[in-house]
Design a protein around this nucleic acid. Sequence first.
DNA 1: CCCTTTTCACCTAGGTGGTAAGAT
DNA 2: ATCTTACCACCTAGGTGAAAAGGG
Lengths: 180, 180
Amino acid sequence: RRMFPTFQVKIFGMDPMADYMLLMDFVPVDDKRYRQGAFSSLRYAFHSSSWLVAGKADPATPGRVHYHPDSPAKGAQWMKQIVSFDKLKLTNNLLDDNGHIILNSMHRYQPRFHVVYVDPRKDSEKYAEENFKTFVFEETRFTAVTAYQNHRITQLKIASNPFAKGFRDCDPEDWPRNHR
Amino acid sequence: RRMFPTFQVKIFGMDPMADYMLLMDFVPVDDKRYRQGAFSSLRYAFHSSSWLVAGKADPATPGRVHYHPDSPAKGAQWMKQIVSFDKLKLTNNLLDDNGHIILNSMHRYQPRFHVVYVDPRKDSEKYAEENFKTFVFEETRFTAVTAYQNHRITQLKIASNPFAKGFRDCDPEDWPRNHR
DNA sequence: CCCTTTTCACCTAGGTGGTAAGAT
DNA sequence: ATCTTACCACCTAGGTGAAAAGGG
């Protein structure tokens, strides 16, 4: 499924006329597996709000990479507006053949954002190192899950994602009629 | 609405590593406006199968151009498979601001297919003439309409376009059960 | 007990011809 | 009479969380 929230980035400083590839990957934050906190609430799902270490991480496959589907494009195009990776999909299926990013559930990950300058020179392979730049935003770290662990995240997404409109118990449009 | 049938083309002879833009436009075939043949059938719509000249053409706006949305792309990419212009949309609205191709209804048009080589040289404007090639297939000429004039075209499209499945009176999948 | 998988109703987004009403 | 417009039910295609079922 698609990652939520979507990774979005505003880009400055590119050469407007040059071509760039934009891509993302995910690296493990640590070598641990996590589980829910110990105090179950009365409700099914949504237990205590803490993560506990549950042991050593599962073995990881060599990480896949997600190219932004607009790649390659000119610097001017990338800088024109916020770049959104909303087509990026995550899966826990190690045998996935849809090219989705494979993650281990209940493990912590750090998204990484990479910019590749498309070097027009014939021997561009030689310059691969200098044509490549990686950006890491530590505030985007997360724990991968197969189901929401926090009711407020569920509600946030129901409120903000148009595809989940069916689960809103109060349509913003209906406020005058529908308030309680 | 989208053009039907879709203009599709198989490309050979490009430089696999070079960038190309693919585009289409439409030029009037003649300076005439047409109307339906004189013998009406019993059915509403679908009159005689001939086109009659109804007078001089309406004035035409400067023709718009439709870039294939994959442009620009490498020659290798374009030659890999049939290129389909299925996103191309036609309208008779002279004030259209969706970038659709504007045509006069009941007028005859010749689709044209253009290939533009993206010249990497700094003074590429100088070579615009030689980096540009136009292909015309006369068998693709057509009369623009606001409604189908021929029942067999309607049926052909209902049979071949997945979005019109609701109008099929016989689903191909149901043949063994559904035959008459 | 905790987590994962599958299925489903319910959305968004957009491409169909039919139909009735409008325009000339 | 002929052509155009606006709207509609009915599709395709795909993104949601809920809920039930499955697994260790």
